[in-house]
Nucleic acid binder design. Structure first.
Length: 923
RNA sequence: GCGUCUAUAGCUCAGUUGGUUAGAGCGCUACCUUGACAUGGUAGAGGUCCCCUGUUCGAGUCAGGGUAGACGCACCA
C-alpha cells in the first residue's frame, strides 16, 4: 500500500464496479426503505447544497441497504420549464436567432437535443460523490409515463371542478413573458419615491391629492378611494374627478381598506395593476383598464402620447407632464419593497391575464391533517409551524405558464372559446361528443414545473398504472430537503399524493440546513464565493478557480473584487481532498442548525482522518498478512486489550446507529472519528505492539491480537461505509480475505452492517484498560511538563497499591514498560522511604519517578502547586455544596453521594500532593 | 404587524429529561523524525456559556424581559 491515501486512484474504478454490478437496485426482500431524490434541475450542476443533501441521503440509503432492507433511492431530474427554455434561447440568441424564428415544434426539438447532450451533467457529478441511487429507474419529468400522469391528474382535477380557468391578476415577468408564482418573486426593500399628484374634481370645486410609487399606473386608474368615515372627505364621496392626462371621469368611492392616517387618506385605484386595487375593483364593480403590453410597455388603451413607451420611460414622461400642468404636488424619497423575478431580476408587474388555477382548499385539508396527526413528521419538528402557517393561508395555485417547454395543458378551445379538457384531442371529441369537423385548438400554455414535481412520489412509481412499486415504496421513508422548498414542493407533494393514492408520500421530512460560506454568507455567483464540490474532490488551481468564478457573470463589474478575494482566500488554489473527506465533512456539519457555515479546514481535517485510517490499515496488514490470524482455527486468547477494543467498538456501533436514527449525522460522524482515531489508532494499535513483539506472549495470544486487529478493522470499515464509501470498500477488499467475514459479497456496500452484540461489552476489560491508560498518561504528563526526552527510559516506583492494582500490574507490566518507555517498575517496600520524586496518581496508587538527575526541584514544585491549586478550588466548591443545608436536604441522594465521593477523592489527592511538596521543599 | 431561529474557546460547532472540573475539530505554544501515519506523536495554553431578573438546593440548559443578528409570511397609496 502507498504511504499516503490517494483518493483519486480508487474512487472512479470503485464506482464503476458498483454500478456495473447493479448494486444500486433494491434487493427485492426485507423491509422497504425508500428515499425520493428531490429532482435536481436538468440544467443544473451540482452545488454544495446538493452535495450536502446527497451525502445524507446516500448515507441513509447505504446504511439501510447494509441492514438488509429492500432499499430504493428513486432518482431523476426535472425539466425546469423557464430555466431550460432560457438556456436554449440563449444559445439561439448567440447565433442571432430567437425561438420565434424556429417555431414551437422546432424549438422544443432543440431543447430535447440539448437535454440529450448536456442534461446528464448533474447525474455524472452525483456519481463522483459516490451516491447510490438506482440509476436504472432514473426518470425525467417530461418522460412519457410522467407526462401521462400529469395529464391524468389534470383531467381528473378539472372534471372534479378543482382546476379552473380564470382571468385574474398574476405576477407577470415582462422579460420571460410568463406568469410566475408568488414564490418566484423576491420582495426586497429599495429606495424609491412617492409622487403626490393633484386630481381635480370634475365639478371644478377643488382637487384632492393622491400619492403613488408608480405614477405610470395612473393611466389605468378607475377610481379614487377614501375611508367611509373620513370626515375630511364626506362631501366628495360619490363625486367624480377628471383623471389628468386621460381626461376620463372616475368616481370617488368609500372603502374601509383605506387607511385615513396614511398619506392624504386618498388612494388612487388601478384594479388592473395592483393586487389590493384589484380586490377593491371587484367589490365596487369598477372597470379594469389594462394599460400595459406583455413586455410592460404602454398599450393602445392609454392616451396616445404614451403608447409604446417602456413603463419607466412612461413614468418619467408622466411626471414631467404633470409638473407642466402644475398637478405634481410633491416628490418624496420613499423606501418600498420592490417585487423582482428571482431569475430575471426585473420588476414584476401585477398583470391581468387568463390563467389556469388549482383550487387547493379541499386538497390542503388532508395534507394538514397528515402532519397534525403525526402521520408525517418533520425533523427538526419546528418546521411544521412553517408548514401550517402556509397551509392555513394557502391561495389557489396558478399552474399555467406562457412557455413552450413543459407539459402542454390538455385543454382545447372551439372557435367560440369554449373549453374542453381531456388527454388528447381525440379523447376530448369522444368525451364531449364533438363532431370531427368542429375545429379545436389546444391551449398554448404549459404547466408549472412544480405541478409535475408534485406528483413525484407516485408518478415515479408507475402511477396511474397499478404497479408493485406503488405498493412497496409509497409511502417512502424519509424526504431529505431544504426549508426553501417546503411550500414549492413538499406541501404540494403531500396534497397530490394524498389525493391520488390516498397515502402519504413520506413518513418523515428531514429538513437540512443551508450551506453558507465560512462567513455565514449565502453562496452566490455574484458574491463570488461559490464552491464546486467537485473542486474539493479533485482540487483546482488558483487560475482555474478565478476563471470559473468570474465567467458568465450577471454583473461583470464585480470580477476584480472576486478575483482579489479568491486570491486571498485560496492563494494556492484548492487541494484535492477526495470524496470521502468531503462527505465526512458534510456529515460532521449536519447538526440541527439552520445555517451551516462551510469550513475548508474541516475538509482538510477529515482528509487527514482518511489518511489516518489508511495508515492504520497498513499497520494492521503488515502484522497480519503473512501471519496466522486464527481463521483456520487454532486457539485464540484475547488479551484485556483485545476485549477492551471489542467492547468499545460495540458501544461505538450502538451509538452510531442511535444517532443515525435521530438524523444526527454530526454526532454519528463524531462517534466514528472518536473511536477510530482516539481509541483504535491512539490506543489499541499501540497496545497491540508489545504483544505482537513480545517474546513471552504465546501463539494463542498473538493469534488473538492479530485476529482482533484484522476483524475490528474489517467491521469498522462496514460501519464507516455509509459515510465514506470509497476508502471503506477499498480497504475492505484488502482486509476481508484475512478476516473472519466469509461473505461472498463483491463489495462492502452489499455486505451486512455489524450487528450489535451486548455480550461483547466487557466492563472489566474497560476498567482495566482505563487503569493502563491512566498509568501511561501519568508518566507522559510528567515527561511533558518536566521536559524529559521521550526517548529517555525512566525508572518508576509504585506506592500504595491495592490488590486490584497489583493484579493489573502483574497482567500488564511488560507492556507498560514498552508503552511508557520505562526502564523498570518496582513496588516500594513498606519499610523503605521513597526518594524525592515526581508523582502521578492512578486512583490511590502513586507513581513515583525519582528526580535525581532528571527533574529540577523548582519545576516540580511549580507543577505540584498548579495541581494543588486546582484541587483546592474543587474542594472549596464541593465543601460549599455539602455544607449547604438546603442542598443536603433537597438534592437526590445519588447527587449527594457523588459530591461526597468527589470531596473524599480531592482530599486524598491533595493530601498526597502536600506530602510531596513538603518532601521536595526539604531537599 | 405575525411567526421561526441563532448567540458557548481566536475560528467552526457539540452540549440529551437542570446535577463531576462546560467538550470536539481547526488554529495557537513547546518538545519529538520511535520501525502505520509529520496529512503524524506527546504535553500545554485558551471560556464573564450575549445582558438583566426570576424559578430552584443547584441554571450553559427552564421562565420573563432586553440586546445583537438571520430567515419566513403579511402590509406598504
Amino acid at each position: 500500500m502507498e504511504k499516503t491515501f490517494n483518493p483519486s486512484q480508487i474512487e472512479q474504478a470503485c464506482y464503476q464496479h458498483w454500478e456495473n454490478k447493479g448494486m444500486f437496485r433494491p434487493s427485492g426482500h426485507g423491509e422497504p426503505y425508500c428515499i425520493l431524490l428531490p429532482p435536481p434541475n436538468v440544467t443544473g450542476s451540482l452545488h454544495m447544497g446538493h452535495a450536502f443533501q446527497h451525502t445524507i441521503m446516500d448515507a441513509l440509503i447505504r446504511y439501510h441497504r447494509m441492514k438488509g432492507d429492500n432499499t430504493l433511492w428513486q432518482c431523476g431530474t426535472d425539466h425546469a420549464g423557464i430555466a431550460t427554455q432560457m438556456v436554449v434561447e440563449r444559445q439561439l440568441n448567440a447565433k442571432g436567432q430567437t425561438r420565434h424564428d424556429l417555431g414551437r415544434d422546432k424549438f422544443v426539438e432543440r431543447i430535447w437535443e440539448w437535454k440529450e447532450e448536456s442534461g446528464g451533467n448533474i447525474t455524472q457529478q452525483m456519481r463522483r460523490l459516490g451516491t447510490s441511487p438506482d440509476w436504472e429507474r432514473e426518470v425525467f419529468t417530461m418522460d412519457e409515463n410522467l407526462s401521462e400522469a400529469v395529464q391524468e391528474v389534470f383531467v381528473q382535477l378539472y372534471d372534479e371542478g378543482l382546476i379552473y380557468r380564470g382571468k385574474r391578476l398574476v405576477n407577470w415577468d415582462p422579460v420571460l413573458l410568463t406568469a410566475v408564482s408568488d414564490l418566484e418573486v423576491v420582495n426586497e426593500e429599495e429606495d424609491g419615491h412617492m409622487w403626490h399628484m393633484r386630481y381635480p374634481l370634475s365639478d371644478g370645486s377643488g382637487a384632492i391629492v393622491v400619492a403613488t410609487t408608480r405614477p405610470e399606473t395612473m393611466l389605468g386608474d378607475t377610481a379614487v378611494a377614501v375611508h367611509p368615515e373620513d370626515e375630511r372627505y364626506q362631501d366628495i364621496i360619490g363625486k367624480t374627478i377628471t383623471l389628468p392626462l386621460s381626461q376620463r371621469q372616475i368616481p370617488i368611492i368609500a372603502d374601509d381598506y383605506v387607511d385615513p392616517e396614511f398619506g392624504t387618506g386618498c388612494v388612487k385605484i388601478t384594479p388592473a395593476h395592483d393586487f389590493n386595487d384589484y380586490d377593491m375593483g371587484k367589490r365596487h364593480n369598477l372597470p379594469m383598464i389594462n394599460v400595459f403590453t406583455d413586455d410592460a410597455k404602454i398599450n393602445d388603451d392609454a392616451p396616445e402620447a404614451y403608447r409604446g413607451l417602456d413603463r419607466f420611460e412612461a413614468r418619467e414622461r408622466i411626471v414631467e407632464d404633470l409638473k407642466a400642468l402644475d398637478l405634481l404636488v410633491d416628490i418624496k424619497p420613499h423606501k418600498l419593497k420592490v417585487p423582482r423575478g428571482d431569475r430575471t431580476g426585473v420588476v414584476i408587474e401585477p398583470y391581468l391575464t387568463n390563467q389556469w388555477y388549482v383550487a387547493v382548499e379541499s386538497l390542503a385539508k388532508p395534507a394538514i391533517d397528515a402532519v397534525e396527526s403525526g402521520e408525517i413528521r418533520f425533523v427538526p419538528e419546528n418546521w411544521n409551524k412553517t408548514y401550517f402557517q402556509w397551509m392555513h393561508n394557502i391561495q389557489d395555485w396558478c399552474i399555467s405558464r406562457q412557455l413552450w417547454w413543459g407539459h402542454r395543458i390538455p385543454a382545447w378551445f372551439d372557435e367560440n372559446g369554449k373549453v374542453y379538457v381531456g388527454k388528447s384531442e381525440q379523447q376530448v371529441r369522444e368525451k364531449y361528443a364533438l363532431s370531427d369537423d368542429l375545429p379545436l385548438k389546444q391551449d398554448e400554455d404549459v404547466l408549472d414545473t412544480w405541478f409535475s414535481s408534485a406528483l413525484w412520489p407516485f408518478a415515479t412509481m408507475g402511477w396511474p398504472k397499478e404497479t408493485p412499486e406503488l405498493e412497496t415504496f409509497v409511502p417512502s421513508s424519509v424526504l431529505v430537503t431544504g426549508f426553501d422548498i417546503i411550500f414549492f414542493w413538499v406541501a404540494r407533494m403531500i396534497m397530490m399524493t394524498k389525493k391520488f393514492t390516498g397515502k402519504i408520500p413520506f413518513k418523515e421530512i428531514y429538513i437540512t440546513g443551508l450551506i453558507r460560506d465560512e462567513n455565514g454568507d449565502k453562496m452566490s455567483k455574484s458574491k463570488g464565493n461559490v464552491l464546486d464540490p467537485i473542486d474539493l474532490i479533485d482540487g483546482i488551481g488558483l487560475d482555474a478557480l478565478i476563471e470559473k468564478r468570474t465567467t458568465g457573470m450577471m454583473q461583470p463589474q464585480l470580477a476584480d473584487k472576486i478575483t482579489k478575494q479568491t486570491r486571498k482566500q485560496f492563494p494556492e488554489g484548492i487541494n484535492a481532498y477526495g470524496t470521502d473527506a468531503l462527505r465526512f465533512t458534510f456529515a460532521a456539519m449536519a447538526s440541527t442548525s439552520r445555517d451551516i457555515n462551510f469550513d475548508m479546514s474541516r475538509v482538510e481535517g477529515y482528509r487527514n482522518f482518511c489518511n489516518k485510517i489508511w495508515n492504520a490499515t497498513r499497520f494492521v496488514l503488515m502484522n497480519t498478512e503473512d501471519f496466522d490470524t486464527g481463521n483456520a482455527g487454532g486457539e485464540r486468547i484475547l488479551s484485556p486489550f483485545d476485549r477492551w477494543i471489542w467492547s468499545r467498538f460495540e458501544r461505538a456501533v450502538a451509538q452510531f446507529e442511535s444517532h443515525l436514527a435521530d438524523y444526527r449525522f454530526d454526532l454519528a460522524a463524531q462517534t466514528l472519528y472518536e473511536f477510530t482515531w482516539n481509541q483504535f489508532c491512539d490506543w489499541y494499535l499501540e497496545l497491540s505492539k508489545p504483544i505482537l513483539n513480545s517474546d513471552s506472549a504465546n501463539d494463542a495470544e498473538k493469534r488473538g491480537t492479530r485476529h482482533t486487529l484484522i476483524n475490528v478493522l474489517e467491521q469498522l470499515m462496514r460501519v464507516l461505509h455509509p459515510i465514506m464509501p470509497f476508502i471503506s470498500d477499498e480497504i475492505w477488499q484488502r482486509v476481508k480475505p484475512l478476516s473472519a467475514n466469509f461473505t461472498d459479497a463483491a463489495s462492502i456496500m452489499v455486505d451486512v452492517f455489524p450487528q450489535f452484540e451486548t455480550s461483547v461489552i466487557d466492563e472489566q476489560a474497560e476498567a482495566d484498560i482505563e487503569w493502563v491508560k491512566a498509568f501511561v498518561i501519568g508518566i507522559r504528563n510528567i515527561r511533558g511538563e518536566m521536559d524529559i526526552a521521550p526517548s529517555k527510559r525512566l525508572p518508576v516506583l509504585l506506592n500504595n497499591l491495592s490488590e486490584q492494582d497489583k493484579t493489573r500490574l502483574r497482567n500488564t507490566q511488560e507492556y507498560l514498560l514498552m508503552l511508557a518507555k520505562l526502564e523498570s517498575i518496582d513496588i516500594l517496600d513498606e519499610e523503605s522511604t521513597a526518594p524525592a520524586s515526581a508523582t502521578a496518581l492512578v486512583g490511590e496508587m502513586e507513581i513515583l519517578i525519582p528526580m535525581a538527575g532528571l527533574i529540577d526541584k523548582e519545576a516540580e514544585l511549580a507543577r505540584l502547586a498548579k495541581a494543588a491549586e486546582k484541587l483546592e478550588k474543587e474542594l472549596a466548591r464541593t465543601e460549599g455544596k455539602l455544607n449547604n443545608q438546603n442542598f443536603v436536604s433537597k438534592a437526590p441522594s445519588e447527587v449527594i453521594d457523588k459530591e461526597k465521593a468527589k470531596l473524599e477523592d480531592a482530599q486524598m489527592q491533595l493530601k498526597k500532593l502536600q506530602e510531596q511538596q513538603q518532601q521536595i521543599e526539604a531537599l
